[in-house]
Every structure is written in C-alpha cells, then in structure tokens.
Amino acid sequence: MIELTIDGVATSVEPGTTVLDAARAAGAAIPTLCFDGRQDPFGACRVCLVGVEGAPGPVPSCTTPCRDGMVVDTRDPTARRVAGAVVELVLSELPGPPAPHTELAAVARDLGVGEPRWPGAVHQPLHDDRHPYLSFHHELCISCGRCVRACDEVQGAFALTATGRGFEANVVAGLDAGFRESTCVSCGACADTCPTDAITEISLLEVLP
C-alpha cells in the first residue's frame, strides 16, 4: 500500500491509484471535464489540477499516480486559479453560456468562473441532425475526447474521431457524413458521457408522432 496525505488527512491506497481517485475516495471534491471513471484517464482538460508538495507547479490529478509520502492539497490556490482560468477559456470558445444542467456548467459554478477575460473567436454553429436518435451540435464540442473513448474503449464501435488540430479541433462520426453513415451502433454511450450536450440523444417522445 502507498501512504500519502490528502488535505491534511493521512490515507493509504493500492499501487497504481491516481491522485484523483485517492482524493475523491477521501471525500475531496476535484472538478474534472475530460475524466469519466469508465474510461482510461486522458489528461486533456487540466481542470483536475491539485497542489503537490515539492512539485514545481500544479499537477493533473487524473493522470498522476500516488507515490509514498506525497502531500496533496486539492485546494491549492495556484491550482484552483489555473483550473478556473482554463474553464474560462473553455467558456470563451462557446457561442453562449452552457446549459445549466450540463457538467460544464456545474464545473464553472464550482470554480466560480465569471465572464471570460479573453474574448475572441467562437465556434460557428454546425448542427448534424441526420440521425434519428443522436444529434450533434459541433459548436458545443470542447474536444474532451470522452465520446471518442466511450465509442472505442467501451463500445468497440470506432465510429468517432477527433479532427483538426489546435483551436479547430472537433469530433466527427465516420468520414464526417454523420452517425448513420458510420459504424455507429446507436448505443448512445457518446451522448451519455458528453459534458456539454454537444452530442445528445433525441428522446423517443420527441420523435414519436
């Protein structure tokens, strides 16, 4: 077992446990955006930053393994400041505020993120409603990769991919001709994990006459 201290409390975990898992098990609240416990950690959003004694800067808790003697501070002011700024950047790329029920909106509230300090280009609206049950509003995609990993790791359907690079990054199904023309099996795992409602399941009630 590995012995470490999280927010002043001594705790012990199995080797291989990440700081995020250990901290959550110990009752600490760490916000995350690209993390989904059903998938391997990805390390993209950087919202899960925490302070670790002796580290040169904040550390992403989801991809950092616990080590013996580690002293973790989930409320480290620098880590919280940077995580908040990252969420501010995310909000700045969306055409409007996130829907209040989404994970993104909850994380923004948690971190007390206000009006973005860095306005600039936003994603242009692009709606794909060709599939009977799955709708994709590309402008809401924040490239967290959860849908791609859900499709690949959980479902094994390989229907989705990340596209582009830098600010132009997004996600598409198949050869960008919609879910229907891809290997999508309509399982809805992508919509289920999406933290922004970029991919949503159109409820049967809406499509039935």
Partner: peptide, 22 residues
C-alpha cells in the same frame, strides 16, 4: 504556437489562440 498546437489540452488549444488574438 496557435497553428501548431496539437489541440489535445485545453490551455494550449484555446490559450495560444487567445494570446495570438491579443
């Protein structure tokens, strides 16, 4: 910096674009 960002992590993907815009 912005043109070459691989787009994986959020600070760089959005932040370098914003820095260039400034």
């Amino acid at each position: 910096g912005a043109a070459e960002s691989c787009g994986k992590c959020f600070p760089c993907r959005i932040g370098l674009r914003r820095a260039h815009e400034l």
